[in-house]
């Protein structure tokens, strides 16, 4: 049934650290790799080597520029996947019962055997977390790697979502938000983990850690740390056009020939 559970025993989800993410897209790639070769219909690509390649992805990385009046612009890499909302609008709109939120851990999933591919859940999601696979005609979304996190055939360190396992920067954390002492709960409390588009009232489980404030070196007391290192080594006008070192020796040697 597409009614949402009143409460869930666990609230499994991700913390994404926007201060640390370097925008390498490794999470995008490993997500696609794991989820195309395991659970359900593969994540198809269309015209993969053509002029307009398109494909199904469960995780995407946007890159934004944030600029405050009079300050330097700041680049923020922004991975986005399903937030496993507590009040998930994608679940209740589903007419077939294919979409559901699990009572035991709060993961939002799609039963592909029932999905008729109407796309209404993708319309209901504010975050663009659901994509209709163009070949299979079924809705695909992040499963929080439900086939990894409980998988006893995998070594214990691999029992986390593929995106978390692969992140080379340590910008992604997986855990239970219902437990106040979990890694994700503590990170959220310490760093002011935020919800995306809270005015939509979806109560997302995943949290984003804002970038830490940057040291301001562009204000009144301007200190340009790199400037001294970039100064020309010799300022003598006579030698300005003369290269020094190995190039200088080579130059002189070639002159002599």
């Amino acid at each position: 049934m597409t009614a949402l559970p009143q409460t869930t025993q666990k609230k499994l989800g991700l913390v994404i650290d926007l201060d640390i993410c370097v925008g390498c897209h490794a999470c995008v790639t490993n997500c696609k790799e794991w989820n195309t070769s395991n659970y359900g219909a593969p994540l198809s690509d269309i015209d993969a080597y053509g002029a307009e390649p398109m494909g199904t992805f469960l995780n995407r990385v946007h890159t934004y520029e944030v600029r405050q009046e009079g300050c330097n612009a700041q680049t923020v890499h922004f991975p986005k996947s399903c937030l496993h909302c507590e009040d998930a609008p994608c679940v209740t709109v589903c007419p077939t019962g294919a979409s559901y939120k699990r009572e035991e851990d709060g993961i939002v999933l799609v039963n592909e055997d029932r999905c008729m591919g109407c796309g209404l859940c993708a319309w209901a999601c504010p975050y663009g977390a659901r994509e209709l696979d163009q070949l299979a005609g079924v809705m695909k979304k992040c499963t929080l790697c439900v086939d990894r996190i409980y998988n006893e055939n995998l070594p214990e360190e691999d029992r986390v979502p593929a995106c978390v396992r692969t992140c080379p920067a340590g910008a992604r954390h997986f855990g239970d938000f219902a437990d106040p002492d979990s890694n994700v709960s503590r990170l959220t409390a310490e760093r002011g983990g935020m919800e995306l588009m809270p005015e939509q009232g979806t109560a997302p489980v995943n949290r984003y850690l804002p970038p830490r404030p940057k040291t301001d070196i562009g204000g009144e007391n301007k200190i340009d740390i790199l400037a001294p290192f970039l100064e020309p080594v010799v300022n003598d006008e006579a030698t300005q056009d003369q290269p020094g070192g190995f190039l200088g020796w080579l130059d002189k040697a070639l002159e002599k020939i």
């Binding site: 995008v28 990385v61 890159t63 944030v66 405050q68 923020v76 922004f78 804002p210």
Partner: peptide, 17 residues
Amino acid sequence: TATGLGNLGKVRLLEPP
């Protein structure tokens, strides 16, 4: 509000995904 970055300043898309 979509990115939660509003308190840091004005946000614009630098690179689409």
